[in-house]
Design a protein around this nucleic acid. Structure first.
Lengths: 199, 199
DNA sequence: GTCTATATGGGGATAGAC
DNA sequence: GTCTATCCCCATATAGAC
């Protein structure tokens, strides 16, 4: 097997395990076992655990970037694009109820460890934030675009957190519906100049 | 120093460290050092790390219970009580930006570790949930009380998560204001029979 | 109740054979 | 590139003196 292929397999396995169990709780042995590799051979591909983490974060950032670009192409309107974001909660509901939001939980864990990579992790959150802000700006809400982006991002993080704590699928559906209703309100406000709705 | 006094000091130090660094990342040595105790003596008071965790969760649940009861006494209206809940975000903003929500981060960490105490941790979240639901019921919203409680709890969790990720104090203030506006809407809806606002 | 000394195990990391 | 063997450190946990 080629080295780059093995490396890719390691990063994929680490990505999954870091999500399911967390970064700290995942050992080299866990990843090695998942890939079918000996522990010793590991260090041919990665000199330290932090290097695997960096590769995982980079992979997640790239996948996020690709997903956001795909939504750009698939949807005509900014409204539909924001709806696509909100609907990740439904599409990934099983995983979210089991392990939370992959981005949010990693940010939270790295922040607590004061890990050097914590800013890289919250950078993924910023990818969503900036993309959402561009969508709200496209809706004609330039002035409040970032605040609206943070608001919807906050709600998706809150829903993921409680869905994981209570394992409640009905709660996810209800809150996604509420987020859609909120979005419709914001879109309506963009058309009429008076009475901009609050967050 | 009496044994019960030492025990209390251990639990207090562990509570703080579990919050600041997380449960897994905190070692016996860390707690022992904080209390000024030798590692060995530790096992006189707690046979295992899980026992300290149980004591910390119990302490947090008791403090939560006391806080909720205090709000009951201090506020005349259910609306004021719910506002008191929302305002924890402001009162604790420095801690929250540094380490997140004490309840949310513990729930998240224990859920990932598949720790036996994970349900005890989410039990603290349930204390808030049930208390909030009672307040919404007192507002005359019996049918939706639990959904409204989960909604406001979700928002506080989301705000704490993003505030920690972005270290953004202005964001907290803005979202607390939005939560208060949402609450006023819900109160207004309780008085008028028509047009109940969505979440 | 508190200490020091120590056992035990796991996890990160290295050396060197193949 | 992959392996086995090994080192070292740290953390949980125990034993036994004081």
């Amino acid at each position: 097997m080629g080295a780059s292929d093995t490396r890719r397999q390691i990063v994929e396995a680490a990505d999954r395990l870091f999500y399911e169990r967390g970064f700290e709780a995942t050992s080299f042995a866990d990843i090695a076992e998942a890939v079918g590799l000996s522990r010793g051979n590991f260090y041919y591909h990665f000199k330290a655990k932090d290097e695997i983490l960096a590769a995982v974060i980079e992979r997640r950032a790239a996948k996020t970037h690709a997903m956001l670009r795909e939504w750009e192409g698939a949807s005509e309107s900014a409204r539909e694009r924001i709806r696509a974001f909100v609907h990740i909660l439904i599409a990934n509901k099983t995983m979210i109820m089991a392990h939370g939001c992959p981005v949010g939980t990693l940010c939270s864990e790295l922040a607590r460890l004061e890990h050097v990579a914590k800013n890289d992790a919250s950078g993924i959150l910023s990818l969503f934030r900036d993309w959402l802000a561009r969508q709200f700006a496209a809706l004609g809400r330039q002035a409040e675009a970032d605040a609206l982006a943070l608001h919807i991002l906050m709600r998706s993080q809150g829903v993921a957190a409680l869905a994981a704590a209570f394992r409640d699928e009905e709660f996810i559906r209800r809150e996604v519906e509420a987020m859609e209703a909120w979005l419709e309100n914001q879109c309506a406000a963009a058309s009429s100049l008076k009475s901009r709705p609050r967050l």
